[in-house]
Write a protein that binds this DNA or RNA. Structure first.
Lengths: 162, 162
DNA sequence: ACGTCTCATATGGGTTCCAGAGCATCGGGC
DNA sequence: GCCCGATGCTCTGGAACCCATATGAGACGT
């Protein structure tokens, strides 16, 4: 066998190893960010799942409790309790829909956002320092990768839930 | 003002925007992976926090319950209940330490790993497809970024906890 | 108008989380 | 060798939580 073929084999192997490293790093990152979430939530008297739901509302906009429950993979009745806590803390407001008066629209109040931002401040500035070491093209590459990975996570979650 | 200066200004602005996009994507990715974890845990009759702890044991190796509790930001008594569930499910074993007979070492049993791997299979293959579109150099860049972000998360968590 | 469906929330039972107490054990001083 | 404080894990009790079911209010088709 020529050096060409074995070189290609090594390249393929190295490539697979890097891919595995990325998947493992992603998983480790996920845990680490969960732990960070946990600490932030603890400071705000919120459960982890409360923060997740709040973030879902911030990202995807106002929606009904049942829609939120579907997104979060939780029972609608559970969502009532979560929304009670978030409402009590002044994080969200429950508006009754005008067209369908059974329906409720959960809306995010931005009042306490500064508080949240401050708690994530350490992580944010660390990320700024990390980003500073990359070129614009590299940053674009990273942003695109994260977006795709999120989409993959979304699909995988949907498959398991459905 | 010359076109050179305004061009530099645009570049700086675009750069800042990309950085913000990355931080937001990271946060969104974090939620998405949490939701994925939640679905996986639901299939295995495990709580989210149980999976987190199991993963911590897998990553950082066998350790005592109290050390694990510190890492996870939980009360030692809470850890007892979590370990009870993990032990009942055959995920871990509690060994009494030989040198210090008060101490307990929590060790991960790998018996059910295949089951876990299968549940994450959808996400894994999606990540493989994503990785296939990058060059080896780009993959290295991504892996390094993820590693650094994890480290940043670890530091930020430690600051909040300490 | 009637029944059926959807939506959010109240209710009850089983579970979980956590602070503090309890028990066993280690290490150091004497 | 023995005591004493410190350490490590687990049990106990009380509060909070999650979820299945039931309930009440309202929308929609016929």
């Amino acid at each position: 066998m020529g050096s060409r073929a074995s070189g290609e084999l090594d390249a393929a192997r190295r490539r697979r190893r890097t891919g595995t490293a990325i998947k493992e790093s992603l998983r480790e990152l996920s845990i680490q960010l969960s732990l960070l979430n946990h600490q932030v939530g603890a400071r705000l008297n919120l459960k982890d799942v409360d923060l997740d739901c709040l973030e879902l509302i911030n990202r995807h906009g106002a929606m009904s409790p049942s829609a939120l429950a579907r997104r979060a993979g939780l029972h609608p009745a559970t969502m009532t309790g979560i929304l009670d806590r978030l409402e009590r803390g002044g994080w969200i407001a429950r508006d009754r829909a005008t067209d369908d008066r059974r329906a409720v629209i959960v809306r995010s109040l931005r009042d306490r956002n500064a508080e949240l931002y401050r708690l994530y401040g350490g992580m944010n500035s660390a990320m700024d320092r990390i980003c500073a070491g990359y070129t614009e093209d590299q940053l674009d590459l990273l942003a695109d990768f994260l977006r795709r990975a999120t989409e993959a996570g979304n699909d995988a979650t949907g498959d398991l839930a459905g």
